[in-house]
């Protein structure tokens, strides 16, 4: 299968069948990571640039490992070490990277729409690894993969996303993809952290976590950025943790086998208590592992193509 769109800039770029295919492919790639020699030659000779203008550890490392396991050459560029700090425009960065012969660029940027802008300025493939509060499509794919692996399906599941929806690209990509795959999404946060008209994206909104927690098959906790408190978006971390944090007490009201997810990095004691973070139902670490397979699949599809059977694993 060849993806219809050349780039992965938004999760909306992928059709339902394409998403299913990425998940299948990730499954077959995951096996590679369990080998002693964790490498296949699929993308040998290809150059992939990890352009991380906003700091990130897990996503950058995940993409880097994914590319390396496919035998691609990987170059990491971060804001600190690049000419962007010397005032170079993103357009010129794009032109420069293109001139160096990159086959794909993975971009993380603090400005919404930056990946789209970057893609307009290069001919090579572009993968959005998070642009401001807009999208983080590979995160949505790895979350989908994790849910499917753990619960066997996506369709008809009730998913609660709790936290700073307003500033979350993870929430936006997940609402989109979960809807597309037939799940029902409820967003829970104080109104100051819920962006206007989010319901139109296909999500319900609730403010009382305790009242709705019982219906969820999946509880997805978002990181609360402590600096938001200074913007008066909520009165205190203490009150936030009390009303919206997931602790053992609150978890009693949830379905017994509810799946607990977190994109990381966690703030233990704020959105999730340390006890809850460490129970087996909480699959944050597995999400990270699955991310590797998903990113291998995405890189393979954008740079290689071909059916799963053709993959030289």
């Amino acid at each position: 299968m060849v993806l219809e769109k050349k780039n992965l800039l938004s999760i909306k770029d992928l059709k339902k069948e394409e998403i299913q295919y990425v998940l299948e492919l990730a499954e077959s790639f995951r096996e590679v990571s369990t080998r002693d020699i964790k490498k296949i030659p699929t993308l040998r000779g290809r150059t992939i640039v990890n352009l991380f203008i906003e700091p990130s550890t897990r996503t950058r490392t995940s993409f880097e490992l994914a590319a390396k396991r496919l035998s691609a050459d990987v170059v990491n560029i971060s804001a600190k070490g690049s000419s962007l700090v010397k005032g170079e425009s993103l357009k010129d960065t794009a032109k420069t990277i293109e001139a160096l012969g990159a086959d794909a660029v993975i971009i993380r940027h603090s400005s919404a729409g930056a990946a789209i802008f970057f893609a307009e300025n290069v001919k090579c493939k572009v993968i959005n690894a998070g642009d401001g509060a807009h999208e983080h499509p590979t995160q949505a794919l790895l979350d989908l993969y994790t849910i499917k692996e753990k619960l066997g399906r996506i369709n008809d599941l009730n998913v609660g996303i709790i936290g700073d929806i307003a500033h979350s690209r993870v929430a936006r990509s997940n609402i989109s993809v979960l809807n597309k795959m037939g799940a029902k999404v409820t967003l829970i946060a104080p109104p100051t952290l819920i962006p206007v008209k989010i319901e139109a994206m296909g999500a319900e909104v609730a403010y009382d976590f305790d009242r709705v927690i019982g219906k969820f098959d999946v509880i997805y906790m978002l990181r609360i950025q402590t600096e938001r408190q200074n913007e008066s978006l909520f009165p205190s971390i203490r009150e936030y943790a009390k009303l919206f944090g997931l602790n053992l007490e609150r978890l009693k009201k949830a379905k017994k086998d509810v799946l607990i997810m977190h994109p990381g990095p966690m703030n233990r004691g704020i959105e999730i208590s340390s006890e809850v973070a460490d129970i087996p139902q909480t699959v944050a670490a597995e999400q990270v592992t699955n991310g590797l397979g998903i990113r291998m699949a995405v890189l393979y599809l954008l740079l290689g193509g071909g059916a799963v059977g053709e993959v030289a694993v």
């Binding site: 919404a112 729409g113 642009d131 401001g132 509060a133 807009h134 999208e135 690209r169 936006r172 962006p195 206007v196 008209k197 989010i198 139109a200 994206m201």
Partner: peptide, 13 residues
């Protein structure tokens, strides 16, 4: 503008 499009585009409204 703060509205549906600022929300889906992740831009401050």
């Amino acid at each position: 503008n703060e509205g549906y499009y600022s929300t889906i585009l992740g831009l401050k409204g």
